[in-house]
């Protein structure tokens, strides 16, 4: 039972990261109908930024965090301005392919700048552990869990009551109508990208102490986060978080309980099997937030 709870907790902390990444692209999907396949690679960039800034700032963690978040916001804004604004009104599948290409470019560029060796950074809480009865919990896992929770609450409030959040929702529902009531649609889209990149940056910062930064980090993370988003019902922020948690826990459990028995490496692809199964039984995801429009 103890191992079960231990596994459960580490699964939750891994799942929070998936959920965080998943929220980033659910955000973009809801407001622009673009499925951003480079979200995982934005997380990777966030991780590298964090490492680099903390080196420049002689290990000042909090300043590095602020700088990373700002840099990621600028990057997201810039990507929209340079690339995706040209593609407004194009069919979704060609925009989708552009994001795939962008992911490859980001990965390659990161490899050229920072090399392919994993880089880690020191944080104030890197090696701290919390003992609680029989359980040992690394503080970095707790930081991930609480970071995700806080960010989710902030996002929830942001979309419920802030002006920009409301305009983003309006744009996501009908761009033309939003334009008619005086919302600067293009700028809002750019801001959405900036926000989404910022979330990716935060995910990167939280992830660095656990996994360290390397160029291929984003690929698997991105795919699993996608699985999380679909499992939770694409287009729903709480669903994305929930899907992430589910996948995180599932992976830890299969790694411990099934892998030694079956010797098939099931934990490597358990997330994908869950994805396909969920799609087969409940294609609209756990939390349904989308229906087809009736004409």
């Amino acid at each position: 039972m103890d191992t079960f709870i231990q596994l459960f907790l580490s699964g939750i902390s891994a799942g929070c990261v998936y959920g965080l990444v998943a929220m980033g692209f659910v955000l973009i999907y809801k407001s622009t109908e673009v499925v951003n396949f480079s979200q995982g690679d934005l997380v990777m960039l966030g991780a590298f930024f964090a490492v680099t800034f903390s080196q420049w700032l002689n290990g000042n963690y909090w300043l590095a965090v602020v700088f990373t978040v700002m840099a990621m916001a600028c990057l997201g804004y810039g990507v929209e301005r340079i690339l995706f604004r040209r593609l407004m009104g194009e069919p979704p599948f060609s925009v989708l392919m552009v994001t795939i290409g962008l992911g490859f470019v980001l990965r390659a560029v990161a490899g050229m700048i920072w090399g392919h060796d994993p880089q880690s950074m020191s944080t104030p809480y890197s090696d701290a552990r919390l003992a609680w009865g029989d359980f040992l919990l690394p503080v970095r896992d707790l930081v991930v869990i609480f970071g995700t929770l806080i960010l989710s609450v902030i996002l929830f409030i942001f979309f419920k009551s802030s002006r920009i959040g409301l305009t983003m929702q309006a744009v996501s529902q009908n761009q033309f109508a939003a334009y008619c009531v005086g919302i600067p649609v293009k700028r809002v889209l750019a801001l959405t990208w900036a926000l989404s990149a910022t979330i990716a940056g935060v995910a990167g910062i939280l992830l660095v102490p656990i996994k360290s930064a390397y160029p291929q980090l984003g690929l698997l993370l991105g795919i699993k986060a996608f699985a999380a988003a679909i499992v939770g019902g694409f287009g729903s922020l709480p669903g994305a978080l929930m899907g992430g948690l589910l996948i995180g826990v599932l992976e830890e459990m299969t790694k411990f309980y099934i892998d030694p028995v079956l010797e098939f490496g099931v934990s490597e692809f358990s997330a994908y099997i869950l994805l396909l199964v969920i799609l087969l039984i409940r294609p609209q995801g756990l939390i349904t937030s989308m229906q087809r429009k009736k004409v």
Partner: peptide, 18 residues
């Protein structure tokens, strides 16, 4: 440093689509 080919593939994909 490696990664040149993916970089080129990705860029070509983006440039053509845009």
């Amino acid at each position: 440093r490696g990664g040149l080919e993916p970089l080129i593939f990705g860029s070509i994909l983006i440039l053509f689509l845009v």
